[in-house]
Nucleic acid binder design. Structure first.
Lengths: 333, 333
DNA sequence: CTTTGATGTGAAAGCGTTTTCACCCTTGCG
DNA sequence: CGCAAGGGTGAAAACGCTTTCACATCAAAG
C-alpha cells in the first residue's frame, strides 16, 4: 500500500475549479473571489493536499533552497555562522543544503556543481582558499554567491566579514603594550587568504608601528586542531616567544593547555590571545582573551544579503564589514 | 544577459539522437552503442551540459537529498553526528537539507512538512521529545525516517544509539565505587525521553544495585548550556552532593567550572562525569571523564541505515545499538 | 533463407506545478 | 444605455527530465 499523493489536479476536480485557480489560492494570489477561495481551501484541507515543491521548482525556476558550503560543521566558529545563516534562511522561507568541504578545493568545486545542478537560488560559501578553478565556477553560477566569514584575495564576490587586519593589529598591539617583544603568530595554512593576506598583515603592522622587527621564526603555520596547538609548546619556547596571537580558538586552547601542561604559566609567563570568541574561550582555564566577532550575525547578515541578491534588490554595499572588538579575559595581563 | 541554460534537448539535437538516448548516456545505461555514447559525450562536453536535478527529481520521483533535523548545530554533540551523516550521505551521492529545530515541537512539525514537500528521499531526525503530533507526521511520511542519537519512548522508528541505560548505570556505579553516596543527576529537560526514560533509569539502577536510596532532591533539571551548569554550584553544595553525573558536555563544563570557581576542588572534593565525549572534555581542566560514544559513527551508521531503507533493501535490525565506553580523565578519581 | 532474440534507438507520455492568454462578467461612469 | 476597465477564471503551454513501448536492426540458429 504505497501512500497516495494528492495533486493540484485532484483538488481542482473536487472543488470544481481549474488548476490555475487552486494554484492561485495556494500562492495567495489576491485575484480570487473569497467564496471560491474558501471552497478551495476546504477541499485542500479535506484532501490534505500538500504542494510538491519539486514540481513547483521546475515550473517557477525557484527552489527556495540555498546551498551552504562549510569547511567543517564541527568547528565552533563555522557552526556559529551556520546557525545564523539557517535562522535567517528559515525566516525568509528558505532551506539550507549544507555540505562540508574540508576546505578541499576539489571537493568544493564538485559540491558547487551539484548545488547548481540542484538549482539552488543562492549559495553561501565559507572557506578561505578560493582557487582559480573555484573562482571560475563562481563566475559560471547564475545563482548569487556570498562569502561569509571568509575572504578572497580578489574581492570579486559579495561578502560579510570583520576587518581582520585591524582586529589582529589591535590584538597584537595589546600584547606589545604588555611589554612583549617576541610575539608568536600561530595560524592555519598560509595558503589561506585570511592568514596570509589579512591576519599576517595586521600582525606585521602592529610590529612595525611599535618599531619591532618582523621575524619569520615566530610565525607558526599549523593545523586548526587542538592537538596541533598542544604540541606547539616546545617550539614556542625555543623561539623565545612570550606571547602568541592565535588564529583559531580550538587551536588556541591547545596552545594554552600545552603551555600550562609544560609548566609555563599563562598569562604570567606567556600571554595568549585568540581570534574567534567562540564558546570555547569561556570554557578553558584561564579563560581566553580574544578578538570578538559577531559570529551569529556574520552568518545572519550574509544570508540576509543573499536574499536581497536573489530578489534582484539593489544592495548599497556588496562587501559588508561588521564591527569587532577585543575581549580581555584571563589569558592576557 | 541572463545566463542561458542548455537542456537535454539541445544536446539531443546537436548530437542527432533522441532525448532518450542522451538520458541513457547521462545515467550510465549500458544499452547504448559505444559510438553513440562517445558522440553524445562530446556534445555534452562541448555544450557544457549539466542535468537539471529538479526536473530529474520530478520525473524520477527521487531527489537524492535527505532532510536532517538537528536541535542545534552549534552543539558539539549534534554537530559531530551531523558530520558523520553528511560524510556518508556524500559517499552515497545524497545531499543534506539541514534544519535547526531547537527541539521545539512546533518547529519540528513544520520543518518535517517542508522537507516532505521538498520530496526528500529520507529523513534523519535528532531530538528527544517526540510528541504525538510529531509521531503522527512520521507515520504520514512516505520517506523513511531514522532517529540518530535520539530515542523515542515508543520505539516505532528505526534508530541508532548506544545503550544509555547501561552506560549511565556504569558511569554512576563508577562514582559509587569511589565512595560517593550523594550523587547528583544533572540533565536537560525531563520531558526528553533520553533523560526521563533512559538516563534516569540507569542512574536509579546503579543506586539500587548499590543499595543507595534514590533522592529526587539530587536530580537537577536544567538547560543544556554552559551558563546553566556554572550557576548550579550553590544548589549542588546545598544538596550535599559529592559527585555528579551530567547529561551534556557543555553543561558539565559549566558545572565543573562553577564548582572550581567556588573553590570546590574537582575531583578531590567533587567528582564529575559527563555523557558525550565531545572535544570539550579534553579542553577543560581538569579534563572530564566521560561516557564515550562513537559520535561520528552514530551519524554515519544512521545515514547508512537510511540509504538501505531508501533503497528498499531488507535490513536485519531496525534498531542499532553501538558500543559505548567509559573514559577516565581527571574529573573523577 | 526465415526465424528468433538481443540490442539499440526514438516518440511520446508523463511528473505536478506555474504562468500566460484569452475570455467572460460585473461595475461604474459619461 | 453604451462602453471601458477591471476582476475572476479556465485552457493549455511550458518547465527539463525519465521511462515505457514499439520499432528497427543485426547476428546467430534452424
Amino acid at each position: 500500500m504505497e501512500k497516495q499523493t494528492v495533486t493540484i489536479y485532484d483538488v481542482a476536480r473536487e472543488a470544481a475549479v481549474s488548476m490555475a485557480t487552486v494554484s492561485r489560492v495556494v500562492n495567495g494570489n489576491p485575484n480570487v473571489k473569497p467564496a471560491t477561495r474558501k471552497k478551495v481551501l476546504e477541499v485542500i484541507d479535506r484532501l490534505d493536499y500538500r504542494p510538491n515543491a519539486v514540481a513547483r521548482g521546475l515550473a517557477s525556476k525557484k527552489t527556495t533552497t540555498v546551498g551552504v558550503i562549510i569547511p567543517d560543521v564541527t568547528n565552533a566558529y563555522f557552526s556559529s555562522l551556520a546557525r545564523g545563516i539557517d535562522d535567517i534562511a528559515m525566516m525568509y522561507k528558505y532551506n539550507i543544503i549544507l555540505t562540508n568541504s574540508d576546505e578541499n578545493g576539489g571537493k568544493e568545486v564538485q559540491v558547487l556543481n551539484t548545488l547548481m545542478a540542484k538549482q539552488v537560488d543562492g549559495i553561501i560559501f565559507m572557506g578561505n582558499q578560493v582557487t582559480d578553478e573555484l573562482r571560475e565556477e563562481f563566475r559560471r553560477s547564475k545563482a548569487p554567491i556570498v562569502l561569509a566569514g571568509s575572504v578572497d584575495a580578489e574581492k570579486t564576490q559579495p561578502s560579510v566579514n570583520i576587518d581582520y587586519v585591524a582586529a589582529v593589529a589591535e590584538a597584537v598591539k595589546n600584547l606589545i603594550d604588555h611589554g612583549n617583544e617576541k610575539i608568536a603568530f600561530v595560524s592555519g595554512s598560509m595558503d589561506q587568504a585570511i592568514n596570509h593576506d589579512y591576519r599576517l598583515k595586521g600582525y606585521k603592522k602592529a610590529l612595525k608601528d611599535a618599531g619591532i622587527a618582523y621575524d619569520d621564526k615566530l610565525v607558526f603555520e599549523t593545523d586548526y586542531t587542538y592537538k596541533a596547538g598542544q604540541s606547539l609548546e616546545p617550539a614556542l619556547s625555543a623561539a623565545g616567544a612570550t606571547a602568541a596571537f592565535v588564529g583559531d580558538d580550538e587551536l588556541a586552547a591547545g596552545v594554552m593547555n600545552g603551555l600550562t601542561d609544560a609548566g609555563v604559566a599563562v598569562p604570567d609567563e606567556f600571554e595568549v590571545i585568540t581570534s574567534n570568541d567562540t564558546k570555547l574561550t569561556e570554557l578553558v582555564r584561564p579563560k581566553m582573551s580574544s578578538i570578538t566577532q559577531p559570529l551569529y550575525d556574520i552568518g545572519a547578515v550574509a544570508m540576509r544579503l543573499l536574499t536581497k541578491l536573489m530578489n534582484n534588490e539593489t544592495v548599497d554595499e556588496n562587501t559588508v564589514i561588521l564591527p569587532y572588538g577585543l575581549m580581555k579575559r584571563s589569558s592576557t595581563k
